[in-house]
Design a protein around this nucleic acid. Structure first.
Lengths: 108, 108
DNA sequence: GAAAGCACTATCTTTTTGGTAAGTAAAGGG
DNA sequence: CCCTTTACTTACCAAAAAGATAGTGCTTTC
């Protein structure tokens, strides 16, 4: 059986691998919220409404490790940190375009 | 704020709604495994390798309720039950096409 | 007559997720 | 001086999801 490996984990197919990046409670939504431009921690938080600090920082950390997001910290006080999609992350956007489409049709 | 409703749950955007259908540990993979043809319980199980009986029947049940899958039971012994994508379910396939693509690139 | 196949369900344990609250460091405003 | 702002981390507890294992009822095969 062919397998696919990413960050030390083995997946049995490419879809499984992709789902590990965008599935889960918050990962997909965080990526999607950065589709147009870089945003700060609290901006993302306000957009996702029901996420809390703990979940957001956990999710951001993971996505940075997976090289889906860039983290840019300005040395200011109060702190300013911006998150944006990497090239790898931007390539996920066509998936979200299709999801948008399906989601809109599903509620009709 | 605009909201989207499906099966009594409210989502703040169409992507959130779609993720509730294909995200989660097994839902997406079960849908994807039925992309070409109807399959029986044990066929799906063999394909997904690490899923167990409980998770598979739970996932199938949920997807049938959401009208993503059809369940067809033949009155035979030993039992024969086939699962297939509904029209609504088939419309999810472009999402998986994009996921496949990304997953294949990600391991390069 | 034991074992395997089928599509499940029931029960239990472990892991993951979520929720709340508190703490940090330094600057700016009242 | 105290409060606010920012982007976090840590601790603790509760709830939800996932996972492991066993059992069911009936038939065909070895």
């Amino acid at each position: 059986m062919k397998t696919y490996q990413l960050n030390g984990t083995i997946y049995y197919c490419p879809v499984d691998l992709t789902l590990s990046v965008i599935g889960g409670r918050w990962q997909g939504l965080v990526i999607y919220s950065l589709r147009e431009k870089a945003k700060r921690f609290n901006e993302i938080k306000r957009e996702l409404v029901t996420i809390n600090d703990k979940m957001l920082s956990q999710t951001l950390k993971k996505l940075v490790e997976q090289e889906i997001l860039n983290r840019k910290s300005y040395n200011e006080i109060p702190p300013k940190v911006e998150y944006s999609l990497t090239e790898k992350g931007k390539k996920l956007l066509p998936i979200f375009t299709q999801m948008e489409k399906w989601g809109k049709e599903a509620v009709l």
